[in-house]
């Protein structure tokens, strides 16, 4: 994976959503990345999932884009 990108994986779990983040900018932006992803999952009505995230410094527009595609594919969209 190249810099400024992010890899994400979803897995079903019992209970609250969980975000497991590995990021090169964890110290500076870890909390805001988790908040953004968590908020987006909530907005999309997604519950009972673990979101595994490997981040290489993705900006907000990239984080949102990658999560949107992941959710779309998980719902059976294009390239599911």
């Amino acid at each position: 994976m190249e810099s400024s990108d992010v890899y994400m994986e979803l897995e079903p779990i019992a209970g609250e959503n969980e975000i497991v983040l590995q990021s090169v900018v964890e110290r500076q932006f870890g909390d805001s990345i988790r908040a953004l992803l968590s908020e987006t999952l909530k907005e999309e009505g997604i519950s009972n999932v673990k979101l595994n995230v490997v981040d290489r410094g993705a900006l907000e527009c990239t984080l949102r884009a990658r999560l949107e595609v992941l959710l779309s594919r998980s719902r059976g969209g294009e390239n599911a």
């Binding site: 900006l59 907000e60 527009c61 990239t62 949102r64 884009a65 990658r66 949107e68 595609v69 779309s72 594919r73 969209g77 294009e78 390239n79």
Partner: peptide, 18 residues
């Protein structure tokens, strides 16, 4: 071909945000 959806969303967000 298997990344067309990802590119479309990334480009859309890049234009929207940047």
């Amino acid at each position: 071909p298997d990344q067309k959806d990802a590119a479309r969303v990334l480009v859309r967000n890049a234009i929207k945000y940047l």
